[in-house]
């Protein structure tokens, strides 16, 4: 076990845990954002650099600080480590820079993008980015391509997190999906556009943090915030069968896997559940899915707000903020 502090909060975690996962055990605002790391996919992380943190003290034995900011998703903890995330101006400055870099070649076509409303990059930009751009040059663009008959790849929106290539590597048995080219010309591609014909290929859509990979059966059907997410399940021989149905009236517009609070799928679903059962009758509906209150999707207010739970959360946040200035806006207090 290793004991460390993150932004002054102490936590004890198993050896080999990464700083990011240690922060997630504490929870709340001090958790660094992550665009490429995905806990249920091996070897992801380290690429997007938004989770950079400062290690002010390497360990109890060797108290020297680490010379550079480190990617918290891939750096293991050490006993006696002191990590700064929100309390380090250097980290916030670097993160702002990374957000700017991620948006540099992103088309910002949110008004016509199916991912809008549930897009990690949108949230990240909202929280950390500037409202204007300093970039005057042309952005890179690509033609849209089909990955199989159910998935559309719009490479122009891609931020090259490589998550989908790890899905192709780890969930499917034949790797046909990788990265071609180099630098800012690199692109995700099935090798010579070969269709990804595999029962679990649809999970690429769920792991994509932006709108680069979208569900062709859902494209342009509805904005996500006009749909009503319901937890549902069915008995499936290939996967857990636990899904979210995105409904409009009695129509199932989309089926996706269940994501946790960090937008990560823990139980992947098969393509049959995802694409072939678009009728409520196929499913046992469990009830409305919990969506964070500050998410745009929650604007339909279909879920009753648990005031006790909200109060507790606010108190916890205030407790955490003790001893340091409150941030300018706290979404929980303002909303």
């Amino acid at each position: 076990m290793a004991k460390l502090t993150i932004d002054g909060v102490e936590v004890e975690v198993a050896d080999g845990t990464t700083i990011l996962n240690a922060a997630r055990q504490i929870g709340g605002e001090l958790v660094p954002p992550a665009m490429c790391y995905y806990s249920s996919l091996k070897e992801t992380g380290g690429k997007c650099r938004v989770c950079l943190v400062k290690v002010a003290q390497g360990s109890g034995k060797d108290p020297r600080p680490m010379p550079k900011l480190v990617a918290s998703c891939r750096t293991p903890v050490a006993d006696g480590m002191v990590v700064q995330n929100l309390t380090s101006p250097e980290v916030l400055e670097a993160r702002k820079g990374v957000v700017e870099f991620l948006l540099l070649n992103h088309p910002l076509d949110c008004p016509i993008c199916d991912q809008a409303g549930e897009c990690d990059l949108q949230n990240l930009a909202y929280e950390h980015g500037a409202s204007t751009t300093r970039y005057e040059e042309d952005r890179r663009t690509f033609e849209k391509i089909d990955i199989g008959d159910k998935i559309k790849l719009h490479m122009t929106r891609c931020i090259l997190c490589y998550r989908c290539t790890f899905v192709a590597d780890q969930l499917t048995n034949n790797r046909v999906h990788g990265v071609l080219g180099r630098g800012d010309k690199s692109e995700i591609s099935t090798y010579i556009q070969k269709a990804v014909d595999n029962d679990f290929s649809g999970n690429m859509i769920d792991v994509c943090p932006v709108g680069a990979l979208t569900d062709k059966t859902f494209r342009f059907k509805s904005r996500v915030w006009f749909t009503k997410p319901m937890d549902a399940h069915r008995s499936c021989t290939k996967c857990s069968g636990k899904v979210v149905l995105w409904m409009k009236g009695d129509d199932v517009l989309r089926v996706s896997a269940r994501k946790d609070q960090y937008g990560e799928v823990k139980e992947y679903i098969c393509n049959e559940c995802r694409f072939d059962h678009k009728s409520v009758g196929d499913w046992t509906v469990e009830g409305p899915r919990h969506i964070d209150r500050h998410s745009v999707i929650s604007q339909n207010h279909y879920e009753k707000i648990d005031l006790q739970k909200l109060k507790k959360e606010v108190e916890r946040q205030l407790e955490f903020q003790k001893g340091k200035p409150l941030p300018e806006s706290n979404p929980l207090l303002n909303s």
Partner: peptide, 21 residues
């Protein structure tokens, strides 16, 4: 450097191209 960046991490992938431009 823009030509030779591997494109794996965002600051180098996007930043080298921006500087070149």
């Amino acid at each position: 450097y823009h030509h030779e960046s591997c494109g794996q991490c965002s600051p180098c992938r996007e930043g080298t191209g921006w500087m070149e431009k």
